[in-house]
Amino acid sequence: MSGSNHLSRRDFMKVTTGVIGGIITVVIGAPVIDYLVDPALRAGAKEAWIPIGKLDSIPIDKPTPFAFTRTQVNGWERTGTSFGGFIIRRSADPKDILILSSRCTHLGCSVNWHADANEFICPCHDAKFSKEGKVLDGPPPKPLNQYTDFKVDGDGNLLIFFKEG
């Protein structure tokens, strides 16, 4: 250092070149980071009330399967994803309903209802769930998921509240 605060011409050019390089990198770099991670930032939590059938047609005390499809828009592609589960009417009371997802909590296979054994059995690893969805046997860490929000509309249709993700 020469001791003066005065920048020499050469130092000025070196610093300015560095600053210009920095500006260009930041102006293009920062938006590009957002550009690259954009799909991860998009909260895809979509909600909808899905009709799954007339309440009257669902027998009491017998797990009845239902299924519905939701279309997911991923960028420029639209994919249909299927969801399914079982409705168990414990009594004639339209509030006394248990709606279970058929997705096994172990690795996501679809469980089936076996009326003779009175259990849900997952075909992948022979996990067993009770009629209420509790784990009886096998590797699943949690009971079957429930659709806790449901309602019956004026026409007697049973609707469940569906939230993506």
């Binding site: 938006p31 957002d34 550009y35 690259l36 954009d38 960028g75 420029w76």
Partner: peptide, 27 residues
């Protein structure tokens, strides 16, 4: 990262870059 070179998707993927992705219009 987003473009697809196929007649089915090329146009739509570019439309997605322009309207759907953050700063896609800039890139």
């Amino acid at each position: 990262v987003y473009y697809t070179p196929s007649p089915d998707h090329a146009y739509d993927s570019i439309n997605y870059i322009m309207t759907g992705v953050a700063f896609g219009w800039l890139v």
